[in-house]
């Protein structure tokens, strides 16, 4: 497949307030770079993320969506990320059904201490999405910016 060198994907990252958002802050404090394509939305817990939000992002033109939460067992609300895990598994099969590449959506566990992991995950994800190219299938063309 051809890789467009200039393609800059739009990437939405949902981060839970207690671990991953703090992990993202830590990678900032440690000055660990990752591409500016990643834009973070803070949510209280990964289980706050409705799969609808992810579909909405794709519809509005996002090329990749990544959801980060505390490690299993470490959720600030004890069990939230277990729900997340199941919901995302279901969403994957729906995305498969719709014909959207699975790699455009990712679920990652990043703790508040894992600034380096956060940056590494984001670097990897942006690279993967770049390889996939722009999201065409779910994008609502009426939403496309001119």
């Amino acid at each position: 497949m051809q890789v467009n060198e200039n393609f800059e994907p739009v990437i939405v990252a949902f981060c839970c307030n207690w671990c991953s958002y703090a992990g993202a802050d830590l990678s900032g404090t440690n000055r660990l770079n990752y591409p500016s394509n990643v834009k973070i939305i803070r949510v209280p817990c990964s289980c706050r993320v409705n799969p609808m939000f992810i579909l909405r992002a794709f519809q509005k033109g996002a090329d990749g969506v990544i959801l980060c939460g505390c490690h299993p067992g470490d959720c600030h609300y004890t069990s939230g990320n277990y729900f997340t895990r199941r919901r995302i598994t279901l969403l994957y099969s729906m995305l498969d059904f719709l014909g959207i590449e699975r790699n455009r959506t990712r679920l990652e566990w990043v703790s508040a201490a894992e600034g380096a992991k956060f940056a590494a995950v984001m670097n990897q994800f942006v690279e993967d999405v770049k390889k996939l190219g722009p999201n065409r299938r779910l994008e609502d063309l009426r939403c496309r910016k001119q």
């Binding site: 939405v12 834009k39 939000f53 996002a62």
Partner: peptide, 11 residues
């Protein structure tokens, strides 16, 4: 609110 953020980022 979250949808509005998503929209703003994807716009």
């Amino acid at each position: 609110q979250i949808m509005a953020e998503v929209d703003a980022i994807c716009k």
